[in-house]
Amino acid sequence: MEQTGEVWVFIQRSKEKIVEASLEILGRAGELAKELKVPVVGILAGNSAEFLAQTVVTYGADKVYVLCSSYLEQYTTNAYARSISTLIKNKNPAIVLFSATPQGRDLAPRIASALGAGLTADCTDLKIGSYTHPRTRKKYSKILLQIRPAWGGNIIATIVNPETRPQMATVREGMMKVPVPDGSAEGEIVKLTPDVGQADIKTVIVRQELEKKTVDLKGASVIVAGGAGVGSVENFELLRHLAHLFGGEVGATRAAVDAGFISHDHQIGQTALTVRPKLYIACGISGAVQHLAGMDESGKIVAVNTDPEAPIFGIAHYGIVGDLKDIIPRMINTYKTLSH
């Protein structure tokens, strides 16, 4: 058994491609590893994973462990959890990170439970720091500070796993920037043959029905979002029209989704999806913390609301007090004349 103390990132695959959420973590993981003076390592699994290893290196990994097995070609919980748990026991990394995708959230707790390790879900930030236990006064230095929203996004908590190793966390999508790939980067690629067989496959995937994502809020540079104040499905059409004109997407608050004005895949907020477009137009959104924390870092925020006291104005760059049914059509017309 080695004591590598490395920083690991589980690299999720979708068929022959790396899932972007995994690359987002690699950049931050590299910074953490640098502070700890250890390598940052990507973990890949499956038969077709080997040819992706060099790509993981270009995105910043010093080393890649490839678990080569046909039994890991398709993701199933038990086979993956067993193989990775065993690898962790053999190499003893200090930190193991997963993206907080459905797959990451299926896999990470299973591994943490098998290892008796602490796991923090849905982190929005990760740092290296110190911690003093409030009762024993024992001091821990250079440990992982896992920062995440709690209580529906109303507070930010910093969580630590002082005693157990590895320190494990899942990281929310869209919180960290994908590193710029460096084609000349060099890294060590280690091929491993895990002890995994047919008996480890507990789930048979009969078929997958993939749906094209119809809403791409993460990639949108303009978002026109509506809250409960939009008032109806018809009024949301106005927002859609404006978003379309700006080449953007329509977003919504939880209240608007709960009211049935728009579907759930449009929801923005601390616990749903965090966005930072170049322009965010908030219509009929009063500004619950949960929502604001999910869009506060947008480049420019324009708020349209009938209530001059609405908290949304407190974080906006531009505010218009008025009725969106009147203002949005005028924005549409004015923009058309300006862009001609």
């Binding site: 390790a117 924390a293 104005f313 906006a316 505010g319």
Partner: peptide, 19 residues
């Protein structure tokens, strides 16, 4: 194994506001 080091209220920065 996990412990809470600290919790903070979410503080959102005010921006250069223009009416």
């Amino acid at each position: 194994p996990t412990q809470v080091k600290k919790t903070e209220k979410v503080v959102l920065k005010g921006k250069q506001f223009k009416k």
